[in-house]
Measured scan of single mutants.
Amino acid sequence: DTINITLPDGKTLTLTVTPEFTVKELAEEIARRLGLSPEDIKDTHNGKTLDPSLTLAEYGITPGSTITLEIK
């Protein structure tokens, strides 16, 4: 299953994830792909900052969802 990550420059990154991924694991994968530190990444969905300890499923993030990435 894939989700879309909207980057600060407007580009989109597509990642393969499972509903059990935590937001922290997602940030780590994004950081790895972009050459950043996971601590520099802030993920938001529907205007809410995502708690790193919760899973994508707990936020109702499903395949095809879009998450907005902010760099701290």
Rank of each mutant, 00 (worst) to 15 (best):
L15Q: 01
L13A: 03
T68L: 12
T12V: 11
K24N: 05
T22Y: 01
L54I: 08
Y59K: 02
P63K: 03
F21N: 06
I71V: 09
V23Y: 06
P19R: 07
G47Y: 05
E29Q: 07
I30V: 10
D1C: 15
E25T: 04
G64P: 02
R33G: 03
L69T: 03
K24D: 02
P8C: 13
P19W: 05
T49V: 13
L13P: 00
I5A: 02
T14Y: 08
I5H: 02
E70A: 09
T68I: 14
L26K: 00
L69E: 00
D51E: 06
T18S: 08
P63W: 03
G35V: 02
G60A: 03
Y59A: 15
G47S: 05
K24I: 04
S65Y: 05
L50I: 11
T22Q: 02
F21E: 07
G47L: 14
P8R: 09
G10A: 03
H45R: 11
K48S: 10
I30S: 00
E28W: 11
K11R: 13
E25Y: 04
I61H: 02
P8G: 09
E70M: 08
T16A: 12
E20C: 08
T14P: 03
N4W: 12
F21M: 15
P63S: 09
T16D: 07
T62H: 11
E39G: 15
D1V: 15
I71G: 05
P52T: 13
I30Y: 02
T2W: 14
E39Y: 09
E29K: 05
I71H: 06
L34P: 00
G10N: 05
G47E: 05
K24R: 14
T18I: 04
E20K: 09
L56H: 00
E20Q: 12
D9C: 15
I5G: 01
A57H: 08
A31Q: 05
S65A: 10
E58D: 14
L36V: 14
K48R: 11
E58R: 02
P19S: 06
T44W: 14
P38H: 07
A27Q: 13
G64K: 01
V17E: 00
T2N: 07
I3S: 02
I3C: 02
I61N: 01
E29N: 04
A57R: 14
T62I: 12
I3G: 01
P52Y: 14
A31F: 12
A27T: 13
A57V: 11
L34G: 01
T66L: 05
P38L: 13
E58H: 11
T2E: 07
I30N: 00
E70C: 14
T49D: 09
T62D: 05
T16Y: 12
L34Y: 06
I67N: 01
T6Q: 14
G47W: 10
F21Y: 13
G64R: 01
T68D: 07
K48H: 13
G10Q: 04
S53H: 10
G47H: 07
R33D: 01
I67D: 00
I30D: 00
P52M: 14
T22A: 01
G10K: 04
I5R: 03
L69V: 15
T2Q: 10
I67E: 00
T66G: 02
E29R: 04
R33V: 12
P38N: 06
T12G: 04
P63H: 08
E39R: 13
P52W: 14
V23I: 11
T2V: 10
N46W: 14
K48F: 12
K72D: 13
T44D: 07
S65L: 06
E58N: 04
Y59N: 14
D40R: 11
E25W: 06
E20P: 02
V23M: 11
T14C: 08
G47Q: 05
A57I: 10
P63N: 09
P63V: 06
P63T: 08
H45M: 14
G60R: 01
A31C: 11
A57F: 12
T49M: 09
E29F: 14
R32C: 09
S37W: 10
D1P: 10
L7G: 03
S65E: 05
H45G: 09
L54A: 13
D43I: 15
D9E: 05
G60H: 03
R32N: 06
L7C: 08
T55K: 07
L56V: 02
P19G: 03
I30L: 11
T18E: 04
K72F: 14
F21C: 11
T18D: 05
E39A: 14
E25K: 08
T14K: 10
L50F: 10
E58G: 03
H45L: 14
V23H: 01
E20R: 08
L15F: 07
L34E: 01
T62A: 08
S53Y: 08
T66W: 09
T6F: 12
F21W: 14
T18G: 09
P52C: 12
G35L: 05
G60M: 03
K42T: 13
L7R: 02
N46F: 15
K48T: 12
A31T: 05
K48G: 10
P19T: 05
V23K: 00
E70D: 10
N4S: 09
P63C: 06
V17R: 01
K72L: 13
P63Q: 06
L36S: 06
T6Y: 12
L54N: 05
T66F: 07
D51Q: 04
R33L: 12
K48L: 13
T55N: 03
G60S: 02
E58F: 09
L36A: 06
S37D: 10
N4E: 06
I41H: 03
I67H: 03
R32K: 09
Y59V: 15
H45C: 14
L7A: 04
I67Y: 05
I61F: 07
Y59G: 04
L69K: 00
T22G: 03
I3A: 01
L7F: 13
G35N: 09
R33C: 08
N46V: 07
T68F: 14
D40E: 12
F21G: 04
I61S: 01
D40P: 13
L56F: 02
I3Q: 01
T62R: 05
L15K: 00
G35P: 01
L13I: 11
T49H: 12
T66K: 05
P19H: 05
G35T: 03
S65V: 10
T62S: 08
S65M: 14
L36R: 10
G35E: 04
A57K: 12
K24Y: 10
L54Y: 07
D9Y: 07
F21S: 11
E20M: 12
T62C: 12
P8T: 10
E25P: 01
E70W: 08
I30C: 06
L34F: 08
D51P: 06
E20I: 08
E58Y: 11
A31N: 03
P52Q: 14
T44H: 11
G10P: 01
P8L: 10
E20W: 12
V17C: 05
G47K: 04
L26M: 07
G10H: 04
Y59T: 07
T62V: 12
E58M: 05
L26C: 03
K42M: 15
D1G: 14
V17H: 03
T18L: 05
N4A: 08
T18R: 08
D43K: 15
A31E: 03
P19Q: 06
A31L: 06
D9W: 14
G47T: 04
L69I: 15
Y59L: 15
L26R: 00
E25R: 08
T62E: 10
L36I: 14
Y59R: 03
G10W: 03
K11I: 11
T16N: 11
I61W: 10
A27C: 14
H45I: 15
I5Q: 03
T6E: 13
L13V: 07
T6P: 02
N4R: 11
I61L: 06
E70K: 07
L15C: 04
L34S: 04
T49L: 12
I3N: 02
K72W: 14
